[in-house]
Nucleic acid binder design. Sequence first.
DNA 1: ATGGGCTCCTGATGGC
DNA 2: TGCCATCAGGAGCCCA
Length: 282
Amino acid sequence: MPELPEVETIRLGLQSHSAKRRVEVATADESRLFRHNTSGGRAVLDLAEGRTIGGWSRRGKFMWVSFEGADPVLVVHLGMSGQVLCNPSDKASARKHEHLRLELDNQMVLQFNDPRTFGHLTVSEMVKANGRLVPAVLAHIGPDPLENGWEESFSWKQLGASNRKVKTALLDQTIISGIGNIYADESLYRAGIRGDRTLRALTEEQWVNLVGHAAKVMEEALSQGGTSFDALYVDTQGNPGYFARSLNVYGREGQPCLRCGSTIARTSLGGRSHFHCPNCQN
DNA sequence: ATGGGCTCCTGATGGC
DNA sequence: TGCCATCAGGAGCCCA
């Protein structure tokens, strides 16, 4: 459920509340969130317990936390319903879907909650991919629009000859990472392009403009703390984001387009909802 | 090469 | 009030 702005909001909270703190007690359950580790949650406990947190990094929708004196990192993906809360120990009672708990030496507790367990918690070595040091399990993930120099690293030449639909390409994390269903629809609206157009039907200029809108809308969302529709997405302190009020199309089926007054439509594309203005986008 | 369908899960919501 | 269908900020399969 969280896309780049939401994950970055969480990362910032984790960095400020847990960096340079020592993990005194770590506990994990048998959740399939740990499925990518050969020894399940045990691998995470062995890595974290007794170690000091170095810092939190991010690429797209993935975060990872390093520990001082350890080579591997812990990669965190939140899937559709993952949360990481950071609260003082007296306000961190166990939750129904708490799968990992890190108790820090500053009396703060990190709680990893995920009802649907579509995310994962994976111990991974760091490798060099496309000139950047990233966890090996993320080597196939492309750079995100908020990274420096990201635009040079994907090839329009390769994309442009494709019959793929524009929205499918935006959502493909191996090309550009961090964009999910909300911000894909919002950037397509801003660019005036329907998501079911093929890449072949676009000019390079249109594609670059579209991706520029994706970067812009995600930056704006980040400045508002991300998009919350309900209690599923909250930051590390449990607060919602306020960007939902700035959405132009996502979730607005049947309501008037804020630009032209036409009725916002919702179609299905790639098995997901595609909200768009039939008049402004073509 | 591309896309549709399906899967992993729980929970919120709306119609009857 | 309950019961059932539908849908959800993700992503990786398999198969046509």
